[in-house]
Simulated scan of single mutants.
Amino acid sequence: MTRPPLRARLLSALAGDPDGTPSWVRALADGDDRGYFADGGAAWTVHAGTATFVAGIRALLIQALHPGAMAGVHDFSRYREDPIGRLTGTVRWIICVTYGSTEQAHAETARVGRLHQRVSGTYSTDAGPRSYSASDATLVEWVHLAFTEAFLGAHQRWGGPIPGGADAYVREWAQAGRLMHVADPPESEAALRSRMDAYLDRGELVSDARVAEVVRFLRDVRFTGSMRLAYRVLFAAAVASLPRRYRKLLGLRRTLLPVVTATRIVLAVSSRALGSGPRAQDFARQRHRRLQNAMNTDGSAIPSAADEVS
Rank of each mutant, 00 (worst) to 15 (best):
W93Q: 13
A48W: 02
Y79A: 07
A59Y: 06
R86Q: 11
H144G: 02
P67G: 00
A29Q: 11
R26H: 14
T45M: 04
T125G: 04
D33E: 12
I95T: 14
R26C: 14
S23F: 10
L115Y: 15
T102W: 01
Y123P: 08
P67E: 02
Q104P: 04
L65K: 10
A42M: 01
A29E: 13
Y36G: 03
A134P: 11
S131A: 15
R130C: 05
C96W: 02
P83M: 03
A105G: 06
R111K: 13
A51L: 02
R111C: 09
E141Y: 07
A42R: 08
A59H: 07
D32K: 14
R80M: 00
G20V: 02
H144P: 05
G85H: 13
G56E: 01
V73I: 08
R86E: 04
A64R: 01
S101C: 01
R130M: 14
Y132E: 10
T125A: 02
G121S: 13
L115N: 15
T138M: 12
H66C: 06
S133T: 15
H66K: 00
W44F: 00
H74G: 01
G100L: 09
I84K: 06
R92H: 10
T102A: 12
A110T: 12
G121C: 12
E81W: 02
G100K: 01
G49R: 05
A110K: 14
L139Y: 04
G89T: 06
S120T: 14
G49D: 08
D19N: 12
V140H: 10
I62F: 00
C96N: 12
G100R: 06
A71Q: 08
S131Y: 12
Y132N: 00
L115D: 14
S133N: 15
Y132T: 09
D17P: 04
D136P: 05
E81G: 05
A107R: 13
V119G: 03
Q63A: 00
T90R: 06
H144L: 10
A15F: 15
E103D: 15
V73Y: 00
A27Q: 12
T102K: 04
S133I: 11
V91R: 11
S131H: 13
R26T: 15
E108H: 11
L145S: 01
A38D: 11
V119E: 09
T21S: 13
R111Y: 09
H106T: 13
L139F: 04
A59W: 07
L65M: 09
H47L: 08
S77H: 03
T21V: 13
E108G: 09
A110S: 13
L60E: 04
A64Y: 06
T21G: 11
L60W: 06
G41L: 06
R86D: 03
L139V: 10
L145C: 04
T125P: 03
G121F: 12
G41M: 03
D30I: 07
Q63D: 01
